[in-house]
Amino acid sequence: MDQAIIISFVLSVMTASTPLLLAATGELVTEKSGVLNLGVEGMMLVGAIVGFATTVHTGSALLGVLAALLAGAAMALIFAILTLTFLANQVATGLALTIFGTGLSALVGASYVGTAVEGLPKVLFGHDALVYLSLIAVFAVAWFLRRSHRGLVLRAVGDSHDAAHAIGYPVVLIRYLATLFGGAMCGLAGAYMSLAYATSWAENMTAGRGWIALALVVFATWRPIWLLVGAYLFGGIMYGSLAIQAAGAISLFGYPLVVPSQLVSALPYVATIAVLVAISRDRAKIRMNAPACLGRSFHAAG
């Protein structure tokens, strides 16, 4: 392979990986605080359409991205109010949020199908700022959780909310903030889908990436750097499978090998999960990193 092909491969992989990485990074912070928000897919879709519509009407991709960020956070706020204040079940509420987000985005987006936007401006090496932001975000989150005191408090709240409350940390407030951050990142991931990855809107355009992001967080055993590995693995296979599909058929030892396109489309999902399961089987690592209070409601007594 000559250099140009390699570079184009790397650039394409980065493009395919970025939405996953943004969403998964946000969800990781949310889960580390002990909140399981299964509404990632819904928040991404709402972020995608709000970002797209704003860009269409204002002509400014930057405003679109900001709007998507706020839309994602607003969706997360609904979730937080229901689960953290009214102590609704997090799994059920998260699933409802995804269904709500899917429906809402389809409704709002109906009139935008077929519209195209210019997309995000490229800033460096043919990439837009969100690609670099996603990388910075992963490392920033890794540093925040490992090194900073606030990150330590966040992890502590996820590990034992009763102990954190007994010491005197505002458990519910911290969880609100972590959930809002997660929502904002999912909104960004959605904006990337509609403004950079596709530069158009299509119903249900995230195609299950929100669920993959959720799976990535678990299989990366809640370690940000492994999210990066997982997301780029997914992106790599995604791009590879597109290339296979584009080629139509590959020949194996001179015989044409016909692979059904559905199978090729499923490949990144299957392969990413298989690889991550294989590397995350270490029970000690899971015990050390999994937030023990994940998904459990907290109600302060007295």
């Binding site: 590990d159 102990a163 010491i167």
Partner: peptide, 21 residues
Amino acid sequence: FQHFSLFEALTVAENIALGLT
């Protein structure tokens, strides 16, 4: 505390840091 207010997944130093205002 009777039921220790400790965080299982954190180290000794991190646990102590959390108790310092």
